[in-house]
Design a protein around this nucleic acid. Sequence first.
DNA 1: TTTCCCCTCCCCCGGGAGAGGGAGATTTTT
DNA 2: AAAAATCTCCCTCTCCCGGGGGAGGGGAAA
Lengths: 217, 217
Amino acid sequence: MRIRVLLADDHEFFRSGFRSALETQPDLECVGDVGDGREAVTEIERLRPDVAVLDVRMPRMDGLTATETVLGRGSTTRIILLTTYDDDSYIYRGLRAGASGFCLKSMPTEELLGAIRVVARGDALIDPSVTARLVTRFTDGLAPAPAPAPSTELDRLTGREREILLEMARGRSNAEIASRLFVGEQTVKTHVSHVLTKLGLRDRVQAVIYAYENSLL
Amino acid sequence: MRIRVLLADDHEFFRSGFRSALETQPDLECVGDVGDGREAVTEIERLRPDVAVLDVRMPRMDGLTATETVLGRGSTTRIILLTTYDDDSYIYRGLRAGASGFCLKSMPTEELLGAIRVVARGDALIDPSVTARLVTRFTDGLAPAPAPAPSTELDRLTGREREILLEMARGRSNAEIASRLFVGEQTVKTHVSHVLTKLGLRDRVQAVIYAYENSLL
DNA sequence: TTTCCCCTCCCCCGGGAGAGGGAGATTTTT
DNA sequence: AAAAATCTCCCTCTCCCGGGGGAGGGGAAA
């Protein structure tokens, strides 16, 4: 039985190039290719492919949301997410959504085809550049968590955590925050960790960006 | 006489897909494809194609610089620049450089092939969605004028350093910046150090704040 | 009362960040 | 032709950051 693959990418050339690469492989079969995330959801549920290769960034619905949608509805299709550059924040959300693989588009053709076989047999494959820390976070934080409402995210922070976030956003180090708030640096670090985890951010740099983008400053 | 086309893009799939699409067209001919900007310059000057389709983002030299280079040297090759989504900041520079077309990679194949014919006969073509963003960029970029305020410090930075600053401001790690700009991580660290020193900042967190406070984002 | 949640603090550990130094290549300026 | 600037990459070293895991006290809800 050949591995049935669905491809979703908004670049037509990428799709056609991928298709021809798949057709050279006796054990792989491309059952369809679509150009946006909503079509991807529809086709995955209609065709039930073994593996779906989704671009992270697509019109109408991105690959992450598409992954959350189909897996949230109980689909057994394995998902490989494709991204152009390694952006950890995408990867985190993608893995939480239940994606089995995360690859770079610049990856050589053979490796990409190999990745499809890997996830088709049930294994997970993450680009080496992403590390074990994301995997471990994935395995224990594995609540479905499908709807990341933007305004609700902030409410999940406690009062102290919001304070810490604002201090971070002003560019202060943990030690500085600690002395300003009259607590130990360890305490600050704990709060910082919670803030990052709850908001799905990687480090304090992204926390600063979050604060500015959400008009907290 | 067939229209002779040169293609430059760092993604192998994209190039091969594009080539096969071109081969189905009796009036178009792909005279070469290259994977980076410098090769593009070399090949444009050697092969003198009618149209060159250049990805904006490529290793060694980006499509914009390549455009500026070849057109600055008097080449008559028409340039179509390809962009993905998020690099609107480059559009303006691309048009100034004298590019004849500006298209999104997600554009349907037929339209892209049509665009080649359009620019080959001397007309200009800009993707509608690109135009839209260009307009909004103009309209809300009018009020603040040429921004004389933050100039003194900022223009002490070299071009590369400004690029690095923007990358930092988007929350990217040194490794991510390195892969996006196709240079080594050591190089990025050097630039980052220079940026911090020149702007009198302590770390990249403060660099992000600087970028937001000075409306660089 | 028991069970949470919040705030506080501790340890260990890996990895990234940034300083400081040097060096080669290319291009531009002088 | 020589000097300066820019971009690239290498090394070592220190320090902060963030994850994992654990723990105690206090207040609020069950």
